[in-house]
Amino acid sequence: MPDVMIEVADLGIEFYRSRRRNLSLREMVLMGRNTAPKETFWALRHVNFTVGHGEAVGLVGSNGTGKSTLLKTIAGVLIPDEGHARVNEGVAPLIELTGGFLGELSARENIYLTAGLHGLSREQVDERFDDIVDFAGPQVREGLEMPFRHFSSGMQVRLGFAVITTLDEPIILVDEVLAVGDVAFKEKCYKRMEELLSQNKTLFLVSHSENDLRRFCTRGIYLRRGELVADGPMDAVLGQYRRESAGS
């Protein structure tokens, strides 16, 4: 096994089935307690695997089986209820691309803010600024001084992808972001991903696209109802997933 970049050990994440809400004043007077259901379920349970340096791993499974939850736990967005998920190097999270952008700030300001939060100095952002904007496209360049909230959703995603993929982090976490945008932009994203992988970066990809999984990943991990049921060559794992999906 190459140097371990991601270690997931006996991982468990427990959620409430309903969003627990704060009591309103009326509820406090009439009922005196929160009546929201308290039933829980395990989104992930007893998940174990490691990812080595330079590996490209694709995560497969049906909707609601815990794929995005696992990715967010690895990214540090969620805290496990059991076990742990550790990364031994920095992470570039292509998960919710525009989540860290502030709507009232301009696109230019958001580039510096987001890249800075991921560890780039102002001088480093200066050096990469034109490449970021060129990748995001001419509409983004024309709107650099515009508040980010006035961008279309497509423009927001373009800028988010351009910023995150310019980071120097050795681990890339990707959650379905390659499915967005028009055909030309998708191909730009594919080429950028291939450039990153050619630099021996470690990839952890969530996707429903078998073409994308085969294009970028050599190893597959299959989640079913929050449990890891297969870990092996990408083609073999996709075959098992397809057979079980057809029989369900």
Rank of each mutant, 00 (worst) to 15 (best):
I74S: 09
F161G: 06
E127S: 13
N63W: 06
T202M: 02
M146K: 15
H118I: 00
R224F: 15
V133M: 13
D212H: 05
H46P: 01
G32Y: 13
G119V: 01
D231H: 10
A162F: 04
F151R: 03
G83H: 02
H53R: 14
Q124N: 07
T165K: 03
P37K: 00
E109H: 12
I79Y: 06
D168A: 14
S209R: 13
K188G: 11
E169T: 09
C189P: 13
G83A: 04
S121K: 03
G181M: 08
Y112F: 05
G137I: 10
G154C: 07
P170G: 15
M193S: 08
I111F: 01
A136D: 08
P170V: 13
L238Q: 06
E187R: 08
I221Y: 06
F101H: 09
D130Q: 14
E145H: 15
I111H: 02
G116P: 00
S68Q: 00
A184G: 06
G61F: 06
K67M: 05
L205F: 06
V77H: 07
M155D: 01
S106L: 05
G83V: 07
R219C: 10
G103T: 06
T65Q: 08
D126Y: 04
I132S: 13
E7T: 08
E96F: 08
R19I: 06
A36F: 05
K72Y: 06
R33D: 15
G66I: 02
H118L: 02
G76Q: 10
V140D: 12
K186Q: 15
L94F: 05
F15A: 08
E194H: 12
V177E: 15
G100R: 15
D130A: 14
H84G: 07
N48V: 13
G32L: 12
R215Y: 08
N63F: 03
E96H: 10
R192E: 02
I6S: 04
L102N: 13
R122Q: 01
Q139F: 15
N110H: 02
R128C: 14
E142T: 09
H208M: 01
L178S: 11
N88S: 05
I6E: 07
P37A: 00
E109M: 07
A107Q: 09
Y112S: 01
N200F: 00
T35K: 09
G90D: 13
G61S: 02
D182N: 00
C189Y: 02
H208R: 01
V180K: 10
P2M: 04
G181W: 04
S248H: 08
Y16G: 00
E244M: 09
L197G: 00
D131C: 15
A107M: 03
E145L: 07
E227S: 10
D131Y: 14
I95G: 02
